[in-house]
Amino acid sequence: MAEIKKDFKQISESQITITELMLPSHSNFSGKIHGGHILNLMDQIAFACASKHSSNYCVTASVNKVDFLNPIEVGELLTMKASINFTGRTSMVVGVRVISENIRTGETKHCNSSYFTMVAKDDNGKSVPVPGIILTTKKEIRRFARSIIRQQEGRNRTSRFNTKTFKIDDYLPLFENSNSKIDLKNT
């Protein structure tokens, strides 16, 4: 049977906040910060948070839903907050929230929230058990429960669209008002 780590940590023990000035080198031609740059920063803070929690090197297993809600301008301060939302045996879900601030006006905008599944690894690259988290607020319990449901929905989504079990006729009504044309005579 696999080893199970029995220790637990407070969520606050591994939370991380980073603030960075957005520079012209991070932007596109219209002065907006590249989404890829933001994703890179989000992955870095998720790594730092997960590694701090697990006391191990961590790798990104998946990123769940990335929506860019508001553009980020050159010269704004970007603040990212990362927190462990869920712990499995060797994996953790890190919630990352991105907020930009206009330095001159003080206006802040929520730009992105995303969930990174990180896996703890030992020096040989094998997955290792992680400490659990102690849930102390309704918000923490809600985030943990949401992570469980998100995992279940992900498994259902994957199995529903498995190439061996997918039934085209079940999904044809979805195409009625879509911007697509089905032409199966070539398959």
Rank of each mutant, 00 (worst) to 15 (best):
A48F: 06
R150K: 14
I84F: 14
V96K: 07
D169C: 01
Y57G: 00
P71M: 06
I11A: 14
N124K: 15
S27P: 03
H34N: 13
M42G: 03
T105L: 08
F68Y: 11
S114P: 04
S114W: 03
M1D: 09
N179K: 12
T19D: 11
V93P: 01
E176M: 03
K181F: 00
S30R: 07
A50P: 10
K167R: 12
A46Q: 13
K65N: 09
R89S: 04
S51D: 09
D43K: 13
E176N: 12
K138Y: 13
A48K: 07
I72D: 06
I149Q: 07
V63N: 15
F144T: 14
A50L: 04
F116S: 08
E153T: 07
G125T: 09
I84Q: 11
T90H: 06
I133P: 13
I11C: 11
L184Q: 00
V96M: 10
S83D: 14
S113Q: 11
D123R: 07
F68Q: 04
V59T: 01
P129M: 06
R89H: 12
F166W: 05
S54E: 05
N64I: 01
N186C: 00
S100V: 13
I45P: 03
K9A: 12
P129R: 05
K167W: 00
V63Y: 13
S100N: 11
S12R: 15
A82L: 10
Q151W: 05
M1N: 07
D123Q: 03
T187R: 02
Y115F: 08
S27N: 01
T17L: 11
T163D: 00
V94E: 08
G36E: 10
A50V: 04
N186S: 04
S55I: 03
N156T: 06
L135I: 14
S54H: 05
V98A: 08
R89D: 12
V128R: 10
L23E: 14
N85V: 06
V98I: 09
H110N: 09
T187Q: 07
M1K: 08
S54D: 08
Q44G: 09
I148N: 15
M92G: 08
R155S: 02
I45S: 09
I18T: 13
S30T: 05
G154Y: 03
M118Q: 07
V119F: 04
F116Y: 15
M42V: 15
V128T: 09
K109G: 06
R142T: 15
G31Q: 14
I72P: 06
S62Y: 12
H37N: 10
T158W: 01
F8L: 15
G95K: 12
I99H: 14
T87R: 09
I84V: 15
P71A: 10
E3A: 13
I182Q: 01
G125D: 01
V96I: 09
I141F: 14
M118A: 06
E20A: 12
G154T: 06
K164Y: 04
I148V: 15
V128D: 06
G125F: 02
H110G: 00
I4D: 03
S91M: 11
S27H: 08
L172H: 11
G154V: 02
M118T: 04
K167C: 10
T158N: 04
V96G: 01
